[in-house]
Nucleic acid binder design. Structure first.
Lengths: 219, 219
DNA sequence: GTTAGCATGTAAGGAGTTACATGATTTT
DNA sequence: AAAATCATGTAACTCCTTACATGCTAAC
C-alpha cells in the first residue's frame, strides 16, 4: 500500500522523502500518516526493484576517506519514478479484487489515485466497496435490532455511531458511482482516461480468476 | 488492545475462544474482527500471565497413550478471568493518556468497556479524543481551503468525505461528553475533584463490588 | 550561537494476518 | 455418510511503529 502510494505521488513529480511524507499525510486526509521508519525502507526497496531512481547531490567523490559515513550519506535525495515503476504502478492500479476495497484504508489510497485508474476498474472498486460497506451496515443493523438489552449504553452508542458512519459512506459511494456512470456515458469508453495509454481493458491479470465478476453491469 | 478487549469480555462471563471472537466482532461493530491466529496466542499469553484460567473438559486421564495429541488437546476450552486479570484490566482501564484516544480503533475498544471505567477517566478520554479529532478536522479544513486546484476530484471527494466524518465524530463526542457531565452532576460523587485517586470498582480482587454493575446508574 | 525545522536513515519490535493442520459436533 | 459449522492451535510473514542516531540550514 505504501509503495503504491509512493509511486502514485512520484508520478506527479519527483520528490525527496521528507516531502513525500507530507504529501502522503495530506492525500490520506490527515487520517493517518506514516513514519520515516517505514517510508525510507520502502523507498529503498523501490530503488532496489528499479522502480525509482535517486538523484543524489554529490556522487561521493567529494568525501575523503577520513570522514567515513557514519549512518549513511546525507543531503537531499530526490526520488524519481522510472518507466518500470510506472508500469508496476499501473499494474497495481488495475487490480480490482477484494484487497482494493475490503480494507477502508487501502480503499482510500486507491481512490486517491483514481486519476491513474481505468474507468471500468474504478467502477468495480467502487461497487465492491459499496457491497463491503453495505454488508457491514447490515451486520450493525442486525446487531442493534437484536441486542438492545444485552449491551450497555456505551456499546450501543458506539454501534449507533458506527451505523451512522457506514450509512453515510454507502450514500457517498452511491453518489460517486452515479457520477462514474454519467461520465462513462458522456465519454464513449474508448478513452476514459487521457492520462493513460490504454493497452487493453486494464489487463486480465488482476487478482484471481476465481473472483466473481459475473455481476450485472448497469448501463 | 486485544488483551484488553478479551479481559473486558471475560469480565461479563466465561467463554471459549470461538465465542470470544464472535462477541469481539460484534462489540467492535463489525468494523473489524480478529483472526484466530491472533486470538489464541493472546489467550495463551493471558493464561501464562495468570490473568485467565482454563476450564478444560477432560483432565487428560481419559486419553490412552495410543492416541497422542497431534497439535494439542482438543475440545472446548473455557476461559475464565482471575482476580489478577480483573486487577490488570482495571489498571489498563484507568489509563487516560494519548494511547487511549489517538488511535480511533483503540478508542472504540476503550469506549466499549466504559462501563468498567471510572467517570473521571471516561471524561478525560472523551475530551482527549475530541481534541485529537478536532485537530484532524482543522487539518482537513485547511487542506481543503488551500488545495482546490492542486488535487483532482477524487482526492477532493476523499477529503470532503473525511471532513464530514470527522465533523460528525466531533459532534457525537460532544454529545457523549455532555451526557457524562449531566450524569456527574446528578450523581453527586462526594469528591468530583479529579486529583483524587479514585478506586471505584477498580479495587484489588476480592474487595470489588463485583463486575456486575459498577455503580447504580440513575436514569 | 543556539534553537527550530528540514532531512535521512537503522534496529528492534509490536500487533496483527494468512496459510496450514487437526478434530468435534450438528445438520442434511 | 457427507457437508457444514464449530472449535483449537502453530508457523511464517507483513506492515508498520518507536526509539535511536545523525547531520544540514535558516531564523532569531
Amino acid at each position: 500500500m505504501l509503495e503504491f502510494a509512493i509511486l502514485g505521488l512520484l508520478q506527479q513529480s519527483p520528490m525527496h522523502g521528507y516531502e513525500l511524507r507530507k504529501q502522503l499525510a495530506q492525500v490520506l486526509g490527515g487520517l493517518r500518516s506514516i513514519s520515516y521508519g517505514s517510508l525510507y525502507p520502502a523507498l529503498k526497496r523501490l530503488h532496489a526493484a528499479g522502480y525509482v531512481t535517486t538523484d543524489e547531490p554529490a556522487p561521493g567523490a567529494l568525501l575523503p576517506a577520513d570522514a567515513p559515513p557514519l549512518t549513511g550519506r546525507r543531503g537531499k535525495v530526490v526520488y524519481r519514478i522510472t518507466a518500470e515503476g510506472k508500469e508496476h504502478f499501473h499494474e497495481l492500479a488495475g487490480r480490482s479484487g477484494p484487497e482494493a476495497y475490503d480494507d477502508g484504508g487501502l480503499f482510500g489510497v486507491r481512490l486517491a489515485f483514481f486519476r491513474h485508474t481505468a474507468a471500468d476498474v474504478r467502477l468495480r472498486i467502487l461497487e465492491g466497496r459499496r457491497r463491503t460497506v453495505e454488508r457491514q451496515r447490515e451486520g450493525l443493523r442486525a446487531s442493534l435490532a437484536r441486542t438492545r438489552e444485552r449491551f450497555d449504553r456505551y456499546t450501543l452508542e458506539l454501534q449507533r455511531h458506527g451505523l451512522d458512519s457506514v450509512d453515510r459512506e454507502v450514500r457517498w459511494l452511491a453518489e460517486l458511482i452515479d457520477r462514474e456512470l454519467v461520465d462513462t456515458e458522456r465519454t464513449p469508453t474508448d478513452h476514459p482516461d487521457p492520462d493513460r495509454p490504454r493497452d487493453d481493458g486494464a489487463g486480465p491479470a488482476g487478482t484471481g480468476p476465481g473472483e466473481g465478476t459475473g455481476r450485472p453491469r448497469p448501463t
